[in-house]
């Protein structure tokens, strides 16, 4: 790969099958631009994608990638980064993948603080299975499986992350291209687990959380002068149920990622042709 990497180098020649107008187009563009802008190229980038509309992103981007099992994208990314600290690892998925079937992994990935980014395309709906409630669907959101709405409060992924001790929490909107790219870039550059919840509207199955809704209701934290290093201020933003926010909500400047905590520096793919030189010491221990 030449030293001049353009964001289109991260694009595969496969045409997306997302519905026209899907928020995931904008989300993906911002991810590609942010990767190029931070000096990465497809050969040193590993993308892990979950299952669902958002999970198709691995196919439409060009890099080393694994499109795995529903809900388990974060553990895969964790293994890649631990084995190969030299790689840029980005995990992408949807709200169902990350906050429902994979919710357990989400909490522990946040705690673990592995130096990778996690981009969640949150459309508050299950799109690929044609319109069922997701963990972030509103309480009264009527779907084929919840005719009167889920009647349970939506998951607040930002609050989950905060409670689990996140070192970086951000939220963006796929249609605000510049700001979205900037936020993803900050997640990549963060030393630790860079979590971005992206409002990525589903134009086919969600007629409530629409482009217009987000455009009208989003408060831009940068413009509002929010200080992402202020944990208390971050908490206020995250627990504010009346507004939607975009921007870097919290960033721990002193974050020490998992790899540094555990002294992971080696490229684990490199091994000798036989047993390690001092391997007989291992046997001797059993005398």
């Amino acid at each position: 790969m030449s030293s001049q990497v353009r964001f289109t180098d991260f694009k595969s020649d496969k045409q997306p099958t997302w519905c026209p107008g899907c928020g995931d187009f904008g989300t993906m563009n911002g991810m590609m631009k942010a990767l190029a802008e931070t000096g990465n190229d497809p050969d040193n980038t590993f993308i892990v994608a979950g299952i669902g509309c958002s999970g198709k992103i691995g196919t439409y981007m060009h890099s080393y990638a694994l499109h795995g099992v529903h809900g388990r994208a974060l553990p895969v990314g964790t293994g890649v980064k631990m084995a190969r600290p030299d790689l840029e690892v980005m995990v992408a998925g949807g709200d169902g993948d990350g906050y429902s079937i994979g919710a357990g992994h989400f909490v522990h990935a946040v705690r673990r603080n592995v130096d990778m980014s996690y981009i969640v395309m949150d459309n508050r709906i299950y799109g690929l299975t044609k319109g069922q409630a997701s963990p972030t669907s509103r309480e009264d959101f009527e779907t084929s499986t919840t005719p009167e709405g889920p009647k349970q409060p939506p998951v607040n992924p930002l609050a989950l992350a905060l409670a689990a001790g996140a070192s970086f929490i951000a939220q963006s909107f796929s249609s605000d291209a510049l700001r979205h790219q900037e936020i993803v870039q900050a997640a990549i550059e963060h030393d630790g687990f860079g979590f971005v919840n992206v409002y990525s509207p589903c134009v086919t199955f969600n007629d409530v959380d629409t482009y217009d809704y987000f455009r009208d209701s989003l408060v831009d934290l940068k413009e509002a002068g929010h200080d992402p290093n202020d944990h208390e201020a971050a908490k206020d933003v995250i627990l504010d149920a009346d507004k939607e926010y975009q921007g870097v909500i919290y960033r721990d400047e002193n974050s020490v990622p998992y790899g540094a905590q555990h002294g992971l520096e080696s490229d684990m793919s490199e091994i000798p042709d036989g047993a390690p030189e001092d391997a007989t010491d291992l046997v001797r221990e059993f005398y």
Binding site: V76, V80, A83, R84
Partner: peptide, 12 residues
């Protein structure tokens, strides 16, 4: 899945 990720990255 972690082990799978490490294996994809080239580790045994």
């Amino acid at each position: 899945n972690m082990a799978l990720g490490a294996a994809r990255a080239g580790a045994r």
